[in-house]
């Protein structure tokens, strides 16, 4: 899933300056699951914005709606009519959602209410962790299912750096050293010979930005 966090309220308030009729649009997929952009968060943010408006003596129209998925146009048809009534959409989807809405409704400004962080998963309550960088060249078969491109802060492909510290990373003692984890899991699986395999420099053309994929 895509993990994103809400921008600070002051930043959002600043972004909305000059707009009088705003649709706060949630996404029922990834950002709903990471508790930053679903139906519930749309309601809370719209209330906060109304309160801010009240304090500053404004009286703007703040509509609320959540679609199942912002990143697919077929789910956006249901907001056709609402879009005609507003002069800006504040999206609580990821960066893909913002762009999909903007492409679908190019005449109206679509503003990002979230900062998109990474592709990841929930690890424990209120904690999400990054797991994939979409590098286009998966080597998880060689690394015991642990991605060093993503989970090593330097993206090292050939083992840990000297900054590894009791199994933790030098940049953040909260984070595990990916290569220590890989070593331990390979050892458990009896596949340590994979640890000694040389990985050549990454091919950054595996996904030519901007990525495009066609099924043949």
């Amino acid at each position: 899933m895509i993990v994103a966090k809400q921008k600070d309220l002051e930043v959002i308030v600043g972004m909305l300056q000059g707009y009088e009729r705003i649709l706060v649009l949630g996404c029922g997929t990834c950002t709903a699951i990471c508790l930053t952009g679903g139906d519930r968060e749309v309601g809370i943010l719209a209330s906060s914005l109304r309160l801010a408006d009240k304090v500053s003596g404004k009286n703007r129209l703040l509509k609320e709606h959540t679609v199942e998925r912002q990143c697919e146009w077929e789910f956006l048809d249901e907001i056709n009519d609402q879009v005609k009534e507003v002069d800006a959409i504040l999206s609580l989807g990821c960066g893909v959602g913002v762009q999909a809405i903007s492409e679908r409704f190019p005449d109206i400004p679509v503003l990002p209410g979230l900062d998109t962080l990474f592709m990841g998963m929930p690890q424990e309550e209120s904690v999400w962790v990054e797991r994939c960088s979409g590098c286009g060249n998966c080597i998880l078969d060689k690394t015991a299912g642990i991605c060093p491109v993503t989970r090593c802060t330097k993206g090292l492909l050939n083992g840990p750096c000297g900054g590894t510290n009791n199994g933790k990373c030098e940049v953040d003692p909260e984070k595990d050293c990916a290569w220590t984890l890989i070593y331990q899991r390979l050892e458990k699986q009896g596949k340590l010979e994979l640890f000694d395999e040389y990985h050549p420099p990454r091919n950054f053309q595996a996904v030519v930005r901007p990525g495009r994929f066609t099924i043949k």
């Binding site: 330097k154 090292l156 492909l157 990454r202």
Partner: peptide, 27 residues
């Protein structure tokens, strides 16, 4: 050498390149 991580230094917002790392550099 691979090099230390960016955040330990004095340009904390820089991009760490790490296109290669130590083993690949030797090669």
């Amino acid at each position: 050498l691979t090099g230390d991580s960016i955040p330990v230094g004095d340009h904390k917002e820089a991009k760490g390149v790490f296109d290669l790392e130590s083993v690949q550099l030797i090669r």
